[in-house]
Amino acid sequence: MFEAKLQQGGLLKKILESVKDLVVDGLWDCDGAAITLQGMDSSHVALVEMLLRAEAFEHYRCDRNVTLGMNHNHLSKILKCANNDDIVILKAADQNPDSCSLILESKNGEKTSDFVVSLVRIDTDQLGIPETEYSAHVKMSSGEFQRICRDLSQFGDAVQITCSKQDVKFSSSGETGKANITLTHSATVDKEEESVTVDLKEPVDLTFALRFLNLFTKATPISDTVTLSLSQEAPLVVEYKIGDSGHIRYFLAPKIQE
């Protein structure tokens, strides 16, 4: 039997909003320690990896490892019926389940909704992502990053990100013209979610499709801050922490000059 009870249903709503437009359906691997999801967009250019540890749940029981093939649009429809402060319970049999139950309990306990969603058979490709030493880590406000990606999308379909010791520059150009946004490394880190910290081992200069970055920033409500990890010879990693009990990580392969 797999059963997980989340005190704050709003978190699951935000997680679905973060993945459903990038990955239509995905395999939710549940084991004794955590629920993990890894999925790629149809063009295999971007990947999302979600991890939610058992400690995020008020009650978590997973007698045997079970993989739930979830259609994220169906799951999202159910979660649209949940309030942020509803308790959400996920339940599934642990022997090749063909469905998953979701129970929503209102905070005052007066309203209980239960849904059964059919699981889907997915033969998705999983990628092995090696531990990587990145040349640069940029930690910044998630709202600021979302704003930069949205603003630069008006000028071009790609953003060039260049990191130096002092700052990180986001540039885009197209027929409208050219736009540069430069964030300077904050000297004092008083309010974490408003400061920009650049941890640089060596300079990087990479270009990425804004279409995907604007899909990644759907995770903005999950965390006040976002961390970008960059290396010349590796995909970009955009990470949003889920409190201290998990994360959503997006990976995006760069565009290169032909």
């Binding site: 790629m40 063009s43 295999h44 250019v45 971007a46 990947l47 490709d125 999983q126 990628l127 092995g128 992502i129 090696p130 790609a158 270009t207 499709a209 010879e233 590796a234 995909p235 990976f251 392969a253 760069p254 565009k255 290169i256 000059q257 032909e258």
Partner: peptide, 14 residues
């Protein structure tokens, strides 16, 4: 002109 690379250029399929 910029060309989009795929993730499989960097990571192996399991």
């Amino acid at each position: 002109k910029q060309q989009q690379i795929g993730l499989s250029h960097y990571y192996d399929f399991l």
